[in-house]
Amino acid sequence: MRLAVVGAGAVGRSVVDLAGEYGHEVVAVADSSSAVVADGTDGRDAGVDPDAVVARKAERGIVGDGDPADALAADYDALVEATPTTLGDAEPGFSHVRTALERDRHAVLANKGPVAERFGDLRALVNDSDGEIRFEATVGGAIPAVSTVEDIEPGHVTAVRGVLNGTANFILTRMAAEGLDYEHVLAEAQDLGVAEADPSFDVDGTDAALKCVILANVLSFGAADDPADAREFTLDDADVSGIRDVPGSALRLAAEDGRTVRLIGEATGETVRVAPRLVPENGTLAVSGTQNIVQIETTHAGRLNISGRGAGGPETASAVLGDVGRLE
């Protein structure tokens, strides 16, 4: 497949870097201010040189001499949307995906915004297009959460829950292990690059909630006979509380009783909820550090657990490229 990669951050760059290994070719790359588009004069195949793009981004902060819009207009089979996740109108990601679908091309999203905030609008665009959308990378990084739910069939999945934010999980794990308070551990996480300078998105539960909203949309639309009857979820429908104010003493009390606290997200076709919850200390859901876990409750196949790395450039790119493979 010929890919246009929009967004050249950790995820976009890894997709550019790894696409060849998966048998795909990158024909365009854009960041916020520049683009490079293969001109087809290269003789062999028409792709851009991935190493050159990544090097140029590292050295000069741009990917090429073109305008970002050039990448959207390039001759690709699938657009990879890896710009920052935004809430509300989910722009510019939503428009990028719309452009691809209106051109009857596929879109693969790492960006959670459009699938969490405008799932109905996306479905409508897909209906009028020969293109499809896929978004495995938006939930649980490398963990195949969405495709597993699809394989089981959403109508046979009663709930999906799990630990879906590595930053919050790292903080809770360290607080419990070291008996430290939130502020201490947050500073440590920031030093290690596990938490961002402004950690709100992760520690307030927003990121986990977006992932659960996406799962709720998959369950709701997937189980409905007629998509017009499906309930659409957005972040506003989620009941969210984060971990910012969890005191060290609460984790100690939990530990005394063989338990611990994890930020757990739960999605059904009817509700979305993210909150710190008490779980058995050695239980399946008590993954440690930045690990994520997705637990799928099914009608006929019991409970499935998939744990693994929930973030990271190559990890997320692996989910993106898996999606690209499913579109072939």
């Binding site: 757990i264 919850r277 008490l278 779980v279 058995p280 050695n282 239980g283 859901l285 637990q295």
Partner: peptide, 12 residues
């Protein structure tokens, strides 16, 4: 007050 609920019905 903040409440941390258990995951009821979900054994480890």
């Amino acid at each position: 007050l903040r409440l941390v609920e258990p995951l009821t019905g979900v054994e480890a």
